[in-house]
């Protein structure tokens, strides 16, 4: 069954407190190559049957209205992934 994957990230201008905590923890485990971390969200919307343009449009709409808050987040990707 196909899935629609939606990726949401905090807006670039917004300091991401969780990412900041993660980047602070990485060197303690010996991972020293990373200067910054930003934490986002991935949603997988399962579709029964074929993903039509209409269903994809619904997913984009849902991504903007419920899955993300446009004040603090950007929808950076909406794509269909075949199982």
């Amino acid at each position: 069954m196909p899935r629609i994957v939606v990726d949401v990230m905090p807006k670039p201008e917004i300091l991401d407190p969780q990412g900041k905590a993660i980047v602070g923890a990485l060197p303690r485990l010996g991972f020293t190559a990373f200067s910054s971390v930003r934490q986002g969200k991935r949603f997988e919307l399962l579709v029964d049957g074929e993903v039509t343009e209409e269903i994809l449009a619904q997913a984009r709409d849902a991504a903007e209205t419920l899955l993300s808050n446009p004040v603090i987040e950007d929808v950076v990707n909406v794509e269909v992934v075949e199982a």
Binding site: P10, I14, L15, P17, Q18, A21, N69, V71, I72
Partner: peptide
């Protein structure tokens, strides 16, 4: 209320986590 757009802006995690 901010999620409802009755008030502007938003809340994120405390800066000290």
């Amino acid at each position: 209320l901010t999620e409802s757009h009755l008030l502007p802006g938003s809340m994120i995690k405390n800066d000290h986590l």
